[in-house]
Simulated scan of single mutants.
Amino acid sequence: MPPVFRFAPSPNGYLHLGHAYSALLNFERARESGGRFLLRIEDIDPTRCRPDYEQAIYEDLAWLGIAWEQPVRRQSQHIAEYQAALQRLQAMGLVYPSFESRAEIARLVAQRDADGAWPRDPDGAPLYPGAATTLSVVRRAELMAAGAPYALRLDMASATARAGRLTWDESGAGPSGVTGTVEARPEAWGDVILARKETPTSYHLSVVVDDALQGVTEVVRGQDLFHATSVHRLLQALLDLPAPAYRHHQLIRDAEGHKLSKSTQATGLRTLRATGVSPAEIRHRIGLV
């Protein structure tokens, strides 16, 4: 079977040079290996994703000379598949609801920090500090029936005990140059959120379901997602999903050394195109020459 690669942007802003690097890297590796190249639109957040951003993704990629298989998978059209995976985890007793607001969680973290530094995940966010696991089944049902906002979290201790030791094959390199067979450490993330009342899936859950259903064999993405692979390997093991090979590539950074991001208004490809920059110049800027 030919290898299967994918590029999976979110339509919550315009693509920038970092996206161009990842998309071209995947596209060219697929072409060189005789494999397939898929485009996936990760639009599970209706508050931030917009149709005009999605259309701009298609236009920018086509301008770069990238072609992809049809139809494009749009996550918003596959919510039932993510919910089915979530229900499997719930049936294993590995999911619980937490009801604290973001403000309440921040207050709890501040209290924990006063007694010593509360642990943070690899992205620097504090681990869940609440005690929702101590709520009775009856109390949880009462709160949910009353319409209280909630997040559905993975019971990390139980999940890791069930899955055992996990690794993944890394042909790129992590932030510290880690490569080869990498030992997964999902416990570093604490009780991650798998869904919310208003958003029936999360990035972690949907990405592993999508990769499995689309037959993705090669995940080529930025180093900023290297540590998240631990959570993905855990979910793959719990859901009996195949594990692709991983390659985490370097990030494209600005003059100050910060990674390019939509949130920091990094210059979009459409803006560069409008100023007369050519696809060849884009390749030169990102080091793909």
Rank of each mutant, 00 (worst) to 15 (best):
G190T: 09
S136K: 13
V208W: 06
G130N: 03
V182W: 02
T181F: 05
H227V: 13
P129E: 08
A195K: 01
A157P: 03
G180K: 07
D224C: 07
A161K: 00
S176V: 06
V219Y: 02
L225N: 06
S158P: 07
D155F: 10
E183V: 14
V209L: 05
G190F: 09
Y128R: 11
I193F: 04
A146E: 15
Y150G: 01
W189V: 13
T199C: 12
G180C: 00
G222Y: 05
H204L: 11
V192Q: 00
T133L: 15
L152F: 09
V178E: 14
A188T: 10
R139V: 11
T181S: 14
R221Q: 01
H227N: 12
A173E: 05
T133F: 13
G172S: 02
R140D: 10
P129I: 10
G147S: 02
L205M: 13
G164V: 00
S202E: 00
H227T: 14
A145R: 11
T179R: 12
E183K: 06
A141C: 08
R196S: 10
E198V: 10
H204C: 10
S171M: 11
A151L: 12
V182Y: 00
G177Q: 01
A188E: 11
V207G: 01
T199V: 15
A212M: 02
V220P: 00
A151G: 12
W168M: 03
A148Q: 15
G172T: 01
G147M: 03
G215T: 06
G172C: 02
W189E: 08
E218K: 09
E187W: 05
W189K: 06
T134P: 03
T160S: 07
A173F: 01
R140I: 12
R153S: 10
A195N: 06
L166E: 00
V207Q: 04
L135C: 10
L143K: 10
A131H: 15
G180N: 00
G190Y: 05
L152K: 02
H204A: 09
V231L: 15
D191T: 09
V208D: 05
A212H: 10
V208R: 01
P175N: 05
A195H: 05
R139E: 15
A212G: 08
E187C: 04
S202N: 11
R139N: 11
G174W: 04
P175I: 06
A161V: 08
S171R: 11
R185L: 14
V137A: 15
V137P: 09
I193T: 14
P129N: 12
G177I: 03
A157C: 12
S176N: 14
P129D: 08
R196C: 03
R162P: 04
G180A: 05
P129Q: 06
T199D: 06
A132M: 13
T167D: 10
L225Y: 04
G164F: 06
T160Q: 06
K197S: 07
D224L: 07
A188W: 10
P149H: 12
Y203F: 08
D191A: 08
V209C: 01
T133V: 14
V209Y: 07
R153F: 09
A141E: 15
T181P: 07
T133A: 15
